[in-house]
């Protein structure tokens, strides 16, 4: 079953900082939900195709024409930090 170290690894993948208390609680709670989910493993699905959408999707094509979109100002209007028309972020490397 899921262990504390798994929870810490998944939190890293999900870019979520967890407190000690959260890591503890999530280990217990995720274990509980996964235990319930284990039931699906008992079904024989060897000849069953997976379904990603219940109503089959098809590719949607359209002509590649220039149309109005968001202005730069609008696109940046929700950004926590922008400058000179750019999104500003902390250093990456």
């Amino acid at each position: 079953m899921i262990e504390r170290k798994d929870v810490e690894y998944v939190a890293l993948l999900a870019r979520l900082e967890l407190s000690e208390e959260e890591a503890e609680r999530f280990t217990r709670q995720l274990g509980q939900v996964l235990e319930h989910a284990e039931r699906i493993k008992s079904l024989d699905t060897s000849d069953v195709e997976p379904t990603s959408h219940a109503i089959p999707l098809k590719n949607v094509m359209r002509a590649d024409e220039v149309r109005p979109g968001l202005s730069q100002e609008e696109a940046l209007s929700g950004a926590p930090h922008s400058e000179g028309g750019y999104f500003v972020v902390p250093k990456i490397i």
């Binding site: 993948l13 967890l18 959260e22 939900v33 996964l34 699906i40 079904l43 699905t45």
Partner: peptide
Amino acid sequence: VKRRIMLGTYALSAGYYEAYYGQAQKVRTL
């Protein structure tokens, strides 16, 4: 929301994808 992000990330992570997400999609077909 954190719980579900964690659960979903786990179900999609290497080593667990087939057993959880892949199997759930097949159950969805059924």
